[in-house]
Amino acid sequence: MSVLVIADHDGQQLTTGTRATLTAAKELNADRIDILVAGHDCRAVAEQAAQAAGVTTVFLADGESLAHKLAENMAPLVAEHGAKYDHVFAPASSTGKNVVGRAAALMDVQPVADITGVIGADTFRRPIYAGNAIATVQAGAGTKVITVRGTAFEGDALEGGGAAIEEVAAPGDQGLSSFVGQELSQSDRPELASARIVVSGGRGVGSGENFQLIERVADKMGAAVGASRAAVDAGFMPNDYQVGQTGKVVAPDLYIAVGISGAIQHLAGMKDSKYIAAINKDEEAPIFSVADYGLVADLFEAVPELEKELDNVQS
């Protein structure tokens, strides 16, 4: 049994999602695990990947056509190499989802998306209905194409290995799409989907300005900031902060819900968090039914107090 792991990276290092994908791939107990690193000027990534224990070969496809990971150029490469393996594993990141669906269709394979558990060589667990149900799915004949939910597996240490790095040809530019530019969030805060701590505000926060209360506490904790759909719909925060069924699904070590009632659509996005704390003045709020620690209090008093308390703890 052989596995090809498709690496996602920023040109310098593997993403945390890729490290988690490697861990998931190792759970197959395959005879051989290889990694495909595709990009431009990304040898450093291949060298890092080669450090992972249990990896035989790191294939490096380095070319201008792969510089921006355009799906049209990436997918033929993934399909060509992936077809030689029993399994293709990729992180369920924005790049992974964009490329792997296209590659799988070229291979005439129905992928299993966003797995949270490896049960057997062809059987996987994955959440459906925004995590409100868990399906056990068996993949049919041919290469199994899998994307892995990064928060469901510990990241590989990338230590103790010594894989060979082998260069493979980068595909030509398909001429279907071109990169114009990008605008990455300048925030020093961690990315919402992979943050260890998330502090989220809801309708109860009352205004966009009041969200500064949330942001200050988040900064004290090195946390990402999230919002409920109610807060987004009310215009307090932009859409990309939304946690929930139609927003982002997060599973941090700690999720602090402030002024969030806990509607099912919101819970769908955060109920796999390791610990949940809730601050709400309504003691009947459904959020308290999932919170490990609930504080019934006015957020406008409790949150500034929390900020002060964090100072005390840290000093």
């Binding site: 129905q110 149900a133 868990i134 068996q138 949940i276 999932v290």
Partner: peptide, 16 residues
Amino acid sequence: RLDVQKVEEPPAREAG
């Protein structure tokens, strides 16, 4: 192409 073998409730959270 895929066989859905079973669909379960997600594990319930313990009361806090």
